[in-house]
Structures are given as structure tokens and as C-alpha cells.
Design a protein around this nucleic acid. Structure first.
Lengths: 221, 221
DNA sequence: CGGGATCCGTTACGATACTG
DNA sequence: CAGTATCGTAACGGATCCCG
């Protein structure tokens, strides 16, 4: 592997950046935080990353112990975070919270999948979940399925199917964006831009409370 | 200004990285978090950044509203963070906390000044200060002076002189490193590798408690 | 078809030299 | 002191090809 450009400075921030500061690396981590993913799935979510760069970045992440290759059956391999890699969650969240302060530019391109949404909401949920909250929910955004598990003050959001959800929440990406950018108020969102199918009665209050805290936290300042 | 490489993705993390994700930018912010700095002071702290890159990055930070040029008197100009730029403090801290998990490599170069120490300790202090703590301290590391202000649960650490410190704390960078890397235990540090000169009696307990919390938080895992 | 490797034009970086 | 100018080198981005 080519010895990448590195700061090699005696500073913890520089040491962190030597591992995750390269172009694309943090966005790859972002998608991996939504759960294990195949090469092509990552490539799709990162709209426009060159294949060789994705290869190179993944190799470095594996080499540094932040990710690993795993067998997903059927001869397919997936990349997933190691325990060390998962510790980047707070960095990812702080970046998302800071980035949420800026309105999107005009000529932006939407990501090829919504792993970014799962990661951002999951990291936010981890910050605002209370010990009393306890549920599993399917979250559908534009038909893409994610699974939110909350228990004992901890939260985890994965891109993909949910096994035994207490409820299913559906909405659209554009409505979520309008909500966090302050272009739509929460009542309007709750009334006309999402739907809730409850399987375990009583859980919907917990869920909506969490959603409200998440969007508060990610609102454009 | 050359239109820099940018992700232009519909994702808050990408929006953040479009502003602060370029090489060197986060390290420049790191040094600016220690207080206003002149061009040459930044250049020294970043050991080896090319002058044109520093120029370019500073221009972009100013353009994006994270920093500004200010008059420091005597015809000197300094760069300083804006309110928006100060909001990167949590990102910086999370990077430092993550980077602290890795031991320094062998062939690293020490920074030209200790602004990195001021920033890292300041960001950590902001996380662990309690509302009961209230003091101003001069911190001397290898003779470089920094000023730590703590009041009402908030904390701020600036590189430079302190006006009316309640106490003066002296130590060396190598001792601090050994402490956070677990190569020296806190008692040994307190006994033989630092000294404390107290001006306002009673404040030293608060200070040492804060120091202990900071090093706990930054200890290599 | 998924998971890369290889090639090549373009852009950014890094070092040094130079200027107001 | 605070940058600008220049230029060789390394990284990126897009495309194409390879292999199971």
C-alpha cells in the first residue's frame, strides 16, 4: 500500500486525522455506521467516488483496525466496523450537527441510498435517548427500510430490515429535510407528512418523543 | 479563489466536510481554538505547512464565516474564530479523544508551539467542568504559558498570558504525555512532575479535580 | 454481476524562492 | 512579517479492463 500523506505530528487530533482525515474516509465511515455493507452498496451511497479510491480507503480502514471484511454468505463479502471503528460515532455526530447549520447548496446531488439518514438519526438518537425508552421500530424513508433499536439509554440504527418492530414509521426524505431546516413545523409534519403503524400499543409516545428530540438537535441554527 | 474539490452531497456530514474537511483545515482550527493567532504563529504550530496552503485555507475559513482577520494593534493582524467557528469545538474534542487512543508513532515531529495542548485541554475541560468550579489558572507547559478560565460549568483555555490567575500550574509536555498514555500514574505525576503555586487559597482542590477529569478523559484506552 | 486492478489526464499539495 | 509565484510530485477522478 502506498504510504499515504500523513501529518505525523505529536497531537491526538493529528493522529486521528492520519486515520480518518483523508478525503472520502469519513463518508465511508458514515455509511458503515448504518451497518455492514457491500462494496457496491457503499459505492452507490457515495455518489461518484472512484472505485480505486473506495478500494484504497477500505484497505486502509481495515489496516488500521477500524473496519473488517466479513462473509455475508452466498459468497458475498461485506465490510463492517470493528469495535474501534464504532468509536467514531461521536465524531460523525458532531460533524452532522455542525453541517446541519448550513443550508444545502443548489446544485447538490442526492446520495444513492439513505444510509446517511440512518447514521445521522442513529447517532443523534444515541445522544438523546433516555433510560426509560425501550422499543424497536421500523423506519421507512422513501420506501428504504431502517431499523431503530432503543433500550436502556442506548440506541442503534441500522439500514435494512427489522425483525420484530413495535411500530413502523413512514415518511419522506424531503419532509425530514424541511423539518430539520425549519421550513416545516413539527405539527404539520406529524399531521400530514408521516404515518405510524403501531404493533405494541403504548410505544408510539416514546417513539415520537425521541423523534422530536432528534430533529430538535439537528435543526439548522 | 479556486473552486475547491467539494462533495456537494445532500448530507449534513458532507456539508461539514466541504467546509472543514480539507487537509490542514482542522489543524488550523485546532490552533485557532487556543485564541487569536498571527500567520507566522500558525505556520510555526503546524510544522511544515506550506505558506501558500495556509493562505488558501485561511481565506476559505474567512470566506465561509468560520474565521476573521482582526487588527491586533502595532500594524499586526491576527486570525480569530467567529462565533460559528467556535462551534467546531466539539468536533475538535471528539477527534482528540479518538486520536488519544493511538500511541504516537516513532518518527513524529513535535509541533512548533503548544497551542495543540491548550486546545485539547480546553475542549476537554469544557466537557468535564462542573458548575461549582470557578477559577482562573495559569498553566505552564515547558515554559509556554496558557490561561484556563473556568466558571459556572463553562471553561476556556487560551494560549498566552493570564491576567489575574488564582494559581499557577507548571509541568512538562513529556510528563503530560506519559500521564495520558498510562505510562505514569497520577500520584507520581502529582508528586514529582508538576508544581503548583497558589495565590487564592482553596482553589487548588478544584483545579486538581479538573485536571484529573481531563486526563481521565484523554487517556489512551 | 460484484469486487476489484490498471491506466491516464487533471488537480491539489509541498518545498523553495521571491516580494512588498 | 505576511504572504505570492513557481514547479516537481503525489493524490484524485473517470474510464476501462480483469477475474471469480
Amino acid at each position: 500500500m502506498a504510504k499515504a500523506r500523513s501529518y505525523r505530528l505529536l497531537c491526538p487530533i493529528a493522529r486521528a486525522l492520519d486515520r480518518i482525515g483523508d478525503r472520502w474516509t469519513l463518508l465511508i465511515l458514515r455509511d458503515l455506521h448504518a451497518g455492514p455493507a457491500r462494496f457496491s452498496e457503499l459505492q452507490r451511497g457515495l455518489t461518484g467516488i472512484a472505485a480505486n479510491l473506495l478500494t484504497e480507503r477500505l484497505a486502509k480502514l481495515v489496516d488500521d483496525g477500524l473496519a473488517r471484511k466479513a462473509d455475508a454468505g452466498h459468497g458475498a463479502t461485506v465490510y463492517e466496523l470493528t469495535a474501534l471503528g464504532k468509536q467514531t460515532s461521536d465524531i460523525i455526530f458532531e460533524l452532522a450537527a455542525f453541517g446541519a447549520r448550513f443550508a444545502p447548496e443548489d446544485d447538490i446531488v442526492p446520495p444513492g441510498n439513505l444510509r446517511t439518514v440512518a447514521t445521522t438519526m442513529g447517532a443523534a438518537a444515541r445522544r438523546v435517548a433516555t433510560p426509560e425508552m425501550n422499543f424497536d421500530a421500523t423506519v421507512l424513508v422513501d420506501g428504504e427500510q431502517m431499523c431503530l433499536n432503543v433500550s436502556e439509554g442506548s440506541a442503534d440504527m441500522t439500514y435494512g430490515e427489522c425483525r420484530a418492530p413495535d411500530l413502523t414509521f413512514s415518511t419522506s426524505y424531503s419532509a425530514l429535510l424541511a423539518l430539520t431546516e425549519g421550513d416545516m413545523d413539527p405539527d404539520e409534519f406529524a399531521a400530514n407528512h408521516c404515518s405510524l403503524e403501531v404493533r405494541s400499543p403504548g410505544k408510539e409516545a416514546e417513539f415520537m418523543e425521541l423523534m422530536s428530540r432528534i430533529t430538535d438537535m439537528l435543526r439548522t441554527a
